[in-house]
Design a binder for these strands. Structure first.
Length: 563
RNA sequence: CGGGGCGUGGCGCAGUUUGGCUAGCGCGCAUGACUGGGGGUCAUGAGGUCGCAGGUUCAAGUCCUGUCGCCCCGACCA
């Protein structure tokens, strides 16, 4: 994006958008605005600098942590640089909404957001400042919320299709009841930050953080395993080292991860080749804050150096043991011995540590991996960029900020809310990520900075006049045209036209002009064709229109929604 | 926050180890000529507080101290 002259970096995570880049962003914003308006939402704009008190009322000044940009003004008042606007929008609604007769209503804005990212990276994909469309719906009951939610969901589908993007809708909350409280819209892309897990029939997709997996079958219960055995494993604390040392595979290991939940200790057991999924852990412990214990706590618990923790004889020393289904399905495995430089071989789940009891839970606590299934269907993986999310908030904010209304039955109730975000910059970034070749960008016509570029190749008056003529005609017909009238060689202009990714190029040269013709070439094709100068404008309009019609990339994986 | 690296014309870098004379190179830029369909050639020229502050020294881009900024890697952030 920097090479193409779309933007320049000012500081880590902040960018200046140059004319071409800003035009693209504006076109994306126009599409978003049209579709969100059409879905019935009302555009407003709220301050970027918001009073800290509002954020304290919802507790999000703490929840957001250091990502929340703050400063104190000269009066000593706390201010927040808005990363999102639930508080202020709810505060607005609290003042405006009194009666059920005013509902539903949906306020949105397209505005700069700020997040003090601990580490901005991937260029514009994770920047400190970015443009976001954020909408907030206020409803009287579940059914109304579902309609508001659905309206946004559908609008998002239209938006991404119009932007010429292939997208995937992932279930962001594992929906136990069939319906889901949140969906993410993700653009598949090898460089994406997120990993999407989806079933082979394309019916379900999740973020890896949420993707459920079927329990693995327990193989041959009858196999007799010898007694547990302690083995000396000097200085081999990691799974990899232990495997090498004992000539085992990671899948034969039982990995024991000590977690702390406030003062409580929780053991999480997963197979050596699996990864614990913190999101699933949080879910299982009922949303409590749970994290990997620090070294001191591990040493204290196991009486051993880090790397030698194991589940055997631990049940009385910890508050909970969470056993991943895959571990429960193992016949026997190798685990730490809770003794520095020792491991235990032939540890049998159920025999050498419990699989049931008050403090024990066998459940799904790991990331899905290649080969896993869900509902019997194979799980597949793709990287992606999250560009939008729709979310049912419920009454979390409306209760705390007093967004209430008087219902038809005369009782006062908090509004049911939903929030809906789209990252404008990320749409552009992912369009480029998925649309480029060695010569530069290949942009969909709906978001390219210009639809057509005119390249006069040669410096004669005739060529300049013809270029001017087509430029004027196309502009009159409402086509967005860029005329490259720089005094540089043709090759330079061609390179730049390709780099910018403008879908249609009209080249005017001496040879073809002598026959009253100009050349038209699409960015996506290598061959050009000649058309008459007199018809050039008309034919170009037709080409532009057909490109627009061909846009609909659509959704490749769409969860089968119950509603 | 931890680990590593880098700040020198607009951009990319060399020079720093071992202090020394006028701080170089490529690209870009300006002017002119030749050129003119995929980043052409030649000539001439402009442009630098060496991140900032202090110190050592006869002498600092180079050594010392502090400070600021940026990049990369990792602790995992909706």
């Amino acid at each position: 994006m920097i090479r193409a002259g779309l933007m320049r970096k000012v500081a880590s995570g902040t960018y200046t958008y140059l004319p071409a880049g800003w035009r693209s962003l504006r076109k994306i914003m126009d599409i978003v605005r049209q579709e969100i308006d059409a879905a019935g939402a009302l555009e407003v704009t709220v301050p970027m600098i918001q009073p800290l008190e509002l954020w304290q009322q919802t507790g999000r000044d703490i929840d957001y942590g250091e990502t929340l940009g703050q400063f104190t003004d000269r009066h000593g008042r706390g201010n927040v640089l808005t990363p999102t606007a639930e508080e202020v929008m709810t505060y607005l609604a609290a003042g405006e909404i009194n009666s059920y007769k005013q509902l539903p209503v949906n306020f949105y804005q397209i505005n700069l957001k700020y997040r003090d990212e601990f580490r901005p990276r991937f260029g514009v994909l994770r920047s400190r400042e970015f443009i976001m469309k954020d909408a907030y719906s206020f409803d009287a009951d579940e059914e109304m919320l579902e309609r508001s939610y659905r309206a946004m969901y559908d609008a998002y589908c239209r938006i991404f299709a119009r932007c010429g993007l292939e997208y995937v809708i992932v279930e962001a909350e594992s929906g136990e009841m069939g319906g889901s409280g949140s969906h993410q819209f993700t653009i598949p892309c090898p460089n994406g930050e997120d990993t999407i897990v989806y079933t082979e029939d394309n019916q379900h997709a999740w973020n890896i953080e949420k993707g459920p997996v079927d329990p693995l079958p327990k193989s041959d219960k009858d196999v007799q395993v010898g007694p547990i055995e302690e083995v000396h494993t000097p200085n081999v604390g990691t799974i990899e080292d232990v495997c090498k040392f004992l000539k085992k595979k990671p899948r034969d290991m039982i990995k024991t991860l000590v977690h702390s939940m406030d003062a409580k200790i929780v053991l999480a057991l997963v197979r050596g080749d699996h990864e614990v999924n913190p999101e699933k852990l949080t879910q299982i412990v009922g949303g409590a804050h749970i994290e990997l214990a620090d070294e001191a706590a591990i040493v204290k618990l196991t009486n051993a150096k880090v790397g030698f923790a194991g589940p055997v004889d631990m049940i009385d020393k910890v508050d909970m043991i969470l056993v991943d289904c895959a571990v429960a399905a193992m016949i026997a495995g190798v685990s730490g011995a809770n003794k520095t430089d020792y491991h235990l071989a032939r540890v049998v789940p159920g025999r050498d540590f419990p699989l049931e009891g008050d403090k024990v839970k066998v459940c799904d606590i790991r990331n899905a991996v290649e080969g896993d299934t869900f509902g019997g269907k194979k799980l597949l993986f793709r990287k992606g960029i999250e560009v939008g999310q729709v979310f049912k908030l419920g009454t979390k904010y409306s209760k705390k900020l007093g967004a209430k209304f008087l219902d038809a039955d005369g009782t006062e109730k908090p509004c049911l809310m939903g929030c809906y975000g789209i990252g404008i910059n990320r749409i552009l970034a992912s369009a480029i990520e998925n649309g480029h070749d060695e010569n530069g960008m290949i942009l969909p016509i709906s978001i390219a900075p210009w639809q057509v570029i005119i390249v006069p190749a040669g410096a004669t008056d005739e060529i300049a006049a013809a270029a001017e003529k087509i430029y004027n005609e196309l502009t009159e017909k409402g086509v967005e045209v860029l005329l490259d009238d720089r005094d540089v060689r043709g090759g330079v202009k061609f390179k730049d036209a390709d780099l910018l990714g403008i879908p249609v190029r009209i080249t005017i040269g001496k040879r073809s002009l002598a026959q009253g013709q100009v050349e038209v070439k699409l960015r996506t094709e290598s061959e050009s064709k000649n058309i008459d100068l007199d018809n050039a404008a008309v034919e170009t309009v037709a080409i532009v229109n057909s490109l627009k019609e061909k846009l609909q990339c659509g959704c490749s994986i769409n969860p089968n929604r119950s509603s």
